[in-house]
C-alpha cells in the first residue's frame, strides 16, 4: 500500500467515524427539527468516507483530508451564520430555540433598516471608514512606492514598524485617544473618529500596497519613459493599468476593515449619533428593539465584505497572500 492510499483510507475512516458519531448523537439526543441538521451533516461525512474508500487506490489528484477539512470548516462557519439568521427571522415576542428557523418573519430586517439608531450608526461607520480609507490609501501608495522602489535608508525598519502597527492592540489606544478628544472638545463628533481610525487603516493600507507594488512590472515604467511618455501619459498608460486594480482592491479591503472596527468606535464615541455600527450592535443593543433586529443588522452588515469579495475575488486572494495565479 502506498503512503497516499494509506493516508486516504485513514481520512475515510476518520470522516466515517465522525459522521457515525454525529449521526448517532443527533438521532438519540437532539429533538426535531434540528435533528435533520445533524443527520445531514452525518450523511455528508459518511458519504465522504465511502468515497474515500472507493477512490483510495486511484491516481486522482484529490486529498480526502482536505475535503474533510473543508467540511468541518463549513460546518463551523455556517452554523453560527444560520443561528444568526434564525434569531433575525424569529417573530417578535418569540424566542429562538432551534437552529433551523421555524417561523420566518422578515420584519426584523425592516426594523433594522428603518431604525434611526442603526441607520445613523451605519452612516457613521461608512462615513468614517470612507474618509479614513481615502486618506490612508493616499498616504500608503507613495509610502509603499518608496519602500519597494527607492533605496531609502532603514526601509526594513520602517516596514517592520508598519507590520508592528498592524498587530497593535487598538483597544489599548482607545482610552488615551478618548482623553485627547475630550480635551480637544471633539469628543462625540463623527469626524473625530477618522484620525484614530487611521491607526487601523494606514498600516493595513501600506502593508497591502507594498504587496501591490512588488508585483508591478517596473521595467515597463522604464520602457514607457524611454518611449517618450509625458507625466500624464505615464500615469494613464502605466499607473492606471498596472497599479490601479491592485490599489482599488487594497482600498476595498481597508474599507472593510475600517467598517468592522469595533474597539475605536466603542471607546471613542459616547452616545448614539457618533457610535459606529459594530459598536452600536454590542454597546447599545438595548436601545434597539430586540435581539432580532441586532442579528438582522449584523447580517446586513455582512453584505459589505461579501460584495467586496464578489467584485475582485482574484485580486483580493492575491493580496491576502493566497496567490494561485
Amino acid at each position: 500500500m502506498t503512503p497516499s492510499v494509506r493516508s486516504r483510507l485513514w481520512a475515510s475512516a476518520t470522516s466515517f467515524a465522525l459522521g457515525f458519531g454525529v449521526g448517532n448523537y443527533g438521532v438519540l439526543q437532539v429533538p426535531r427539527p434540528d435533528q435533520w441538521v445533524w443527520i445531514a451533516v452525518a450523511v455528508v461525512l459518511m458519504l465522504t468516507g465511502a468515497a474515500g474508500v472507493l477512490f483510495a487506490d486511484t491516481s486522482r489528484a484529490v486529498s480526502f483530508w482536505a475535503i474533510l477539512g473543508v467540511e468541518v470548516f463549513a460546518v463551523f462557519t455556517l452554523v453560527p451564520l444560520l443561528w444568526t439568521f434564525t434569531v433575525a427571522t424569529t417573530p417578535e415576542g418569540a424566542t429562538a430555540r432551534t437552529l433551523l428557523p421555524q417561523d420566518i418573519s422578515w420584519s426584523a430586517f425592516d426594523g433594522a433598516i428603518s431604525s434611526g439608531t442603526l441607520r445613523s450608526a451605519a452612516t457613521t461607520s461608512l462615513l468614517v471608514a470612507l474618509v479614513a480609507t481615502v486618506v490612508a490609501v493616499a498616504l500608503a501608495v507613495p509610502a509603499a512606492y518608496a519602500l519597494v522602489r527607492l533605496q531609502v535608508r532603514a526601509r526594513r525598519l520602517v516596514y517592520g514598524l508598519v507590520v508592528a502597527a498592524l498587530l497593535m492592540p487598538v483597544l489599548a489606544l482607545a482610552g488615551p485617544f478618548a482623553d485627547q478628544l475630550v480635551s480637544l472638545g471633539a469628543y462625540g463628533s463623527r469626524l473625530a473618529l477618522v484620525v484614530p481610525m487611521l491607526v487601523v487603516t494606514l498600516p493595513l493600507a501600506t502593508w497591502l500596497c507594498v504587496t501591490v507594488m512588488r508585483d508591478v512590472p517596473w521595467t515597463l515604467l522604464d520602457a514607457v519613459r524611454a518611449d517618450g511618455a509625458t507625466r500624464p501619459q505615464q500615469l494613464r498608460r502605466f499607473a492606471v493599468p498596472h497599479l490601479g486594480p491592485g490599489v482599488v482592491a487594497a482600498a476595498l479591503l481597508v474599507f472593510v476593515a475600517a467598517c468592522n472596527d469595533f474597539a475605536l468606535g466603542a471607546g471613542l464615541a459616547p452616545d448614539r449619533p457618533s457610535l459606529p455600527l459594530p459598536a452600536t450592535l454590542l454597546v447599545a443593543s438595548r436601545q434597539v428593539d430586540g435581539s432580532s433586529a441586532v442579528a438582522a443588522a449584523g447580517l446586513l452588515w455582512l453584505l459589505i465584505p461579501l460584495i467586496v469579495l464578489l467584485v475582485l475575488p482574484r485580486r483580493i486572494n492575491h493580496l491576502l497572500g493566497r496567490s494561485y495565479r
Partner: peptide
C-alpha cells in the same frame, strides 16, 4: 534632458511588454 527629450528608442533585456 529627460528620456522624452532625448528621443532614444530602447529594447529592454526583459522585453518590457504591456501585458494588457
Amino acid at each position: 534632458v529627460d528620456p522624452r527629450g532625448r528621443d532614444v528608442s530602447m529594447v529592454f533585456e526583459d522585453y518590457a511588454l504591456h501585458p494588457h
